[in-house]
């Protein structure tokens, strides 16, 4: 019990710190939100005009609108910039004093993610609510059970994307192009995680490949859960199982990169 209280205290301090640092750069956060809104807006604009008055692969205009609004929110709540931070920490030596602290540097990164997502996710939610007031197409039916499941799926997706980003950032121990690798991952994820289109609109072979990888679980699954495209106990369980398996594998990748990389870093540093 005491240990739980200790960790709550530590995380409380870390999150408050991250929140206050962010608060100094309010305009910056607005920029990142605009960035997070434009990509789905452009994709929605194109699909909107393609769908016309008919349907594309079962999606009418209103379905696309709901899909991309959900995507906007889920993406903002699960996105992780840690590769870029780690790359800088390792290259410029900022990792050194973080290692000297009695707390693993990953906790600071997690706290930063929580503070950032609370703020930016909250703002996207406000954008969505305002849009829903004037635009019935983006309203979701009231379904608390579904929203609870979505919250759980978003949490798992956020954890997975955090470990993907963290583990890839750790490649900076070996190469100077770690952020470029993360960029390539983002390029592939554009298609396979559902950022450019719902996965059912991809050619079947590509969708088949996506289903074997972690991409759908980091974005498309929580989004489809929220819009109602994934329903039925079997499909929901399958989605959560996939999330758990891939989360486990990426945690393993992170642990491997961390222990191996730190040994190497120590050797270089002295």
């Amino acid at each position: 019990m005491n240990r739980v209280a200790d960790w709550a205290r530590r995380y409380g301090a870390l999150i408050r710190n991250a929140w206050l640092v962010d608060l100094q750069y309010r305009a910056s956060i607005v920029l990142w939100i605009i960035w997070g809104v434009t990509e789905p807006t452009i994709a929605l604009g194109i699909w909107w005009s393609i769908a016309g008055d008919g349907q594309v692969g079962g999606y009418a205009r209103a379905d696309f609108a709901r899909y991309f609004f959900a995507l906007m929110l889920v993406n903002q709540l699960t996105i992780a910039w840690d590769s870029w931070y780690l790359d800088r920490w390792i290259r410029e030596g900022d990792l050194n004093y973080r290692l000297a602290r009695p707390l693993h540097p990953a906790h600071e990164a997690v706290a930063e993610n929580i503070a950032y997502k609370a703020r930016s996710g909250g703002m996207i939610l406000v954008v969505w609510l305002v849009a829903a007031l004037v635009w019935p197409a983006v309203r979701l039916p009231l379904a608390p059970g579904r929203w609870t499941l979505t919250a759980l799926a978003v949490l798992l997706a956020a954890a997975m994307r955090f470990f993907i980003s963290f583990a890839t950032g750790l490649l900076a121990f070996w190469t100077t192009r770690a952020t470029a690798i993360m960029g390539l991952h983002g390029g592939v994820a554009l298609f396979l995680s559902g950022r450019i289109a719902p996965l059912t609109l991809l050619p079947p072979a590509v969708a088949g490949v996506a289903a074997l990888l972690w991409f759908p679980y980091m974005l498309a699954f929580p989004v489809n859960l929220l819009t109602g495209a994934v329903h039925g106990t079997a499909a929901v369980l399958h989605g959560f199982a996939g999330q758990l398996v891939w989360l486990g594998l990426w945690v393993g990748a992170y642990q491997l990169a961390w222990t191996r990389g730190l040994r190497r870093y120590g050797a270089v540093g002295g």
Partner: peptide, 20 residues
């Protein structure tokens, strides 16, 4: 807006629209 270091992000975001 002196505190904003990454204004170019705004350009990148909007310029995506010029792809089509």
């Amino acid at each position: 807006f002196v505190s904003v270091e990454n204004l170019s992000v705004l350009f990148d975001a909007v310029y995506e629209g010029a792809r089509y």
